[in-house]
């Protein structure tokens, strides 16, 4: 097989790379601006909750982190399904990048939740249904990455991980509905219906901010994944 010239990019085109760079820079600027607005709203604008005091402000970080944690596993599952159907590398790269972000967000959900639980419930951790199913989600993410790291190399390892991601996505609706199905320490609704309008607006802005930040991190990690693929390809050529 004839080798391609090294003057050409290993994968994609320079136009694709610059488009991705513009997207990445744009998302970074937008997420930084939105984060500034969110911090202003959380610390300066929104009123302090009467019963929980200042610790209730953790809510504006904890809930968006939870949303992203659940969104990530759905993205991983969809990308994994597309990889299983089409066999295309880009879907696998997307699933891998999202799973790594999922671990970070799931860890932050658990940590921020534990810190919030201590002053409000008096304990760092309790085997509440919502907490337990979130911990299961964290294990699913870690399991996915461990299969990628220590499982069979090549397409077989990718397929194993894809199937784990598909099974793991079942946990997402269970976490969401945990407060409806079981008696838990969490409020019955994920967002209370009697939330003051200022608090609801702050929460919505925080959710949008974290979603944009997540998109930025995803583009960044996906680019890195592409660079890793390029490097592997170059190593194969030079071998």
């Amino acid at each position: 097989m004839a080798q391609t010239s090294i003057s050409q990019p290993v994968t994609g085109s320079s136009a694709t790379y610059s488009t991705r760079s513009y997207l990445r820079d744009g998302l970074l600027i937008v997420s930084a601006a939105l984060m500034a607005v969110t911090l202003y709203m959380v610390f300066m604008w929104v009123p302090t909750e009467q019963n929980l005091g200042v610790s209730q402000r953790i809510f504006y970080f904890h809930v968006p982190l939870g949303w992203i944690g659940m969104l990530s596993i759905v993205v991983v599952a969809v990308a994994s399904l597309m990889h299983l159907i089409t066999g295309k590398e880009k879907w696998d790269s997307l699933a891998y990048a999202t799973a790594e972000l999922g671990v970070i967000f799931a860890t932050l959900i658990l940590v921020t939740g534990a810190i919030w639980a201590r002053p409000v419930w008096g304990v760092w951790w309790t085997w509440d249904a919502k907490l337990t199913t979130t911990l299961v989600l964290w294990f699913i993410y870690v399991g996915y990455l461990m299969i990628r790291a220590y499982g069979p190399s090549g397409t077989q390892g990718k397929r194993y991980a894809s199937v784990i991601a598909l099974i793991g996505a079942i946990d997402s609706p269970i976490i969401y509905k945990a407060t409806d199905w079981w008696r838990t320490a969490h409020p019955e609704r994920n967002v209370p219906s009697d939330l003051a309008s200022e608090m609801l607006l702050t929460l919505l802005v925080a959710v949008v901010t974290f979603t944009v930040l997540y998109a930025y991190l995803l583009v960044e990690r996906y680019s890195l994944r592409k660079s890793e693929s390029d490097l592997d390809e170059l190593h194969q050529r030079t071998a």
């Binding site: 929980l52 005091g53 201590r118 002053p119 409000v120 419930w121 309790t126």
Partner: peptide, 17 residues
């Protein structure tokens, strides 16, 4: 789940958290 701590009603008590 134990009762909230005695400082729960103080809005500034949980600032370190």
């Amino acid at each position: 789940i134990p009762e909230p701590s005695e400082h729960a009603n103080d809005p500034e008590a949980n600032l370190p958290f």
